[in-house]
Amino acid sequence: MERITEQQEHRLLHYLDGQLGTEEVQMLEEELRTQTALRTRLEELRLVHQVLKGKARLEQPSKKFTELVMQNLDHLPQPGLLSPKNGLLLMCGMLVAVGALSFLLGSGVFDNMSGVVNLEQLPVNKNFIKNPLPAFAINGKWVINGIMVLGMGLAFVVLDRTVLKPFFERRSGMGF
């Protein structure tokens, strides 16, 4: 069976939409008389065309639609909490905070912040605890490092959700 070119397919679609000139129609009809594959393809596309045309219609909302809109005219729907602008501002804020912490960390402010947390000293009922509870050494620098990593992570999540994702969704043809 002969193959149909992409160009022929497009001509078939234009033919169905009534967008071909008289000469083009005559040429295509001539081809249709001689090419079975083209004829078959036209029938397949025509079927899709007819079904879609039959399905298409304007839908009607409820009878109270206009009334409800007019009643709620003063209630402007709230936009999303994080617009791209707010997202960028929040991300900048986070980065500034991380930068400030990093500066303080470098200047040795947190060097002396260390200690031990002894769980034995917690005011809990010891009747049900058989083994002694452990004690943890806490280093202030490690805590601040953890907060900074968390802050950076959050900043990138904010950037992704409010700027990058919407941007790429729009570029890829809204991919909702």
Partner: peptide, 21 residues
């Protein structure tokens, strides 16, 4: 004259609803 907005809503409500649907 905000009451006139109802005329625009009436005219375009089915189009708007169809797109949303």
């Amino acid at each position: 004259e905000r009451h006139l907005y109802a005329e625009l809503v009436d005219k375009y409500k089915s189009y708007a609803y169809t797109i949303a649907l």
